[in-house]
């Protein structure tokens, strides 16, 4: 069921996920589209997320946006208050007690385990988005495993000291009780600056023609069931609950929105297994979420392979 809507306020709105922004010219959403999008969200009972570009919007836009409860996803370069701030690189200084996103290549990420630890000492939550996860190799797996272990040590130390920051790749799996994925096309849809709906921003930037309706005709997501977990044969049996399960990456790698590629599965399972170790380590320090069972040990990194071995 649809619950969320993202509004891209401009063609150059910051990316907070796997996709890159390939449009360089500014195209601000029209005020009419913005207002109608907000009305659509009100009528459909959707929670709104506004995604900002790196320049200040006209005052009437802020007035329109403030007519509805919403959250703001903002690039750090804009320097304004945000619910989620997208950091512009590893040299950034994240806000105290804020929620931040860092988009990074795997190679850069692997060099910044200490930085992640430092940031988590300041932030409430950090989301790491590996922008080239689909190119992860077997050699990368060992390095990513080591990275997660190192960051896990930092998180363990913070927890022991009474601070409990969230990191999507390590703490989410400890907290979750079921799959909690992106939801694009199922629970979430995107309104782009052209007044058309898309499964998510990535689908807009990849092909503007690939829309799923517009403000005039309404939403029309063909084969909508394929975005749901119960129509994803690999994912519905998986317990890497923190996995983003990016339907855009799915389509890019396997040509089907309901089927993840090998690399996305492996990355998610390295994180899942590292979460398992982190949970055990924190529990060795004292009582921690005693009502939650241990994360079970598994002998695979790709559930597709486990399915075919069975």
């Amino acid at each position: 069921m649809l619950q969320y809507m993202i509004i891209l306020l401009d063609d150059t709105s910051t990316s907070f996920c796997h996709y890159g922004v390939n449009k360089t010219g500014r195209r601000l959403i029209s005020l009419d589209h913005l207002r109608r999008g907000i009305r659509f969200a009100m009528v459909e009972n959707l929670t709104l997320q506004m995604v900002y570009p790196d320049y200040e919007l006209p005052a009437e836009y802020h007035e329109a946006i403030d007519t509805i409860d919403h959250s703001n996803i903002v690039p750090s370069a804009l320097g304004r208050d945000a619910d989620v701030i997208v950091l512009d690189g590893w040299d950034a200084v994240p806000p105290s007690d804020g929620v931040a996103v860092i988009r990074t290549s795997l190679a850069h990420l692997l060099k910044h385990a200490a930085t992640v630890g430092d940031w988590l000492a300041r932030l409430t939550r950090l989301n790491i988005v590996i922008t080239d996860v689909e190119r992860m190799t077997e050699a990368d797996c060992d390095e990513y495993r080591a990275f997660l272990s190192q960051v896990g040590t930092a998180i363990e130390r913070l927890y022991v000291n009474g601070r409990s920051p969230q990191l999507n790749t390590l703490t989410d799996r400890m907290m979750l009780t079921a799959m909690n994925n992106c939801g694009a096309g199922d629970t979430c849809v995107t309104l782009a600056p052209n007044g058309k709906f898309y499964v998510c921003p990535a689908f807009y930037y990849e092909d503007e023609q690939d829309c799923v309706g517009d403000l005039d005709t309404g939403l029309d997501i063909k084969n909508k069931q394929l975005y749901r977990l119960d129509h994803a044969p690999i994912c519905r049996k998986c317990d890497a609950w923190q996995c983003r399960r990016c339907v855009w990456l799915n389509r890019k790698t396997t040509l089907e929105v309901n089927t993840p590629g090998h690399e996305q599965c492996v990355a998610a399972h390295l994180e899942r297994n590292a979460s398992r170790e982190l949970l055990q380590r924190i529990r060795r320090q004292g009582t921690f979420m005693p009502d939650r069972p241990e994360i079970p040990e598994i002998d695979y990194l790709d559930p597709f392979e486990a399915m075919h071995k069975a």
Binding site: P233, I234, L255, E256, H262, E263, F304, M307, H308
Partner: peptide, 12 residues
């Protein structure tokens, strides 16, 4: 490209 085969091999 084995990723391209995954949808076919998980079809039910």
């Amino acid at each position: 490209d084995k990723n391209k085969l995954r949808p076919f091999l998980t079809l039910d």
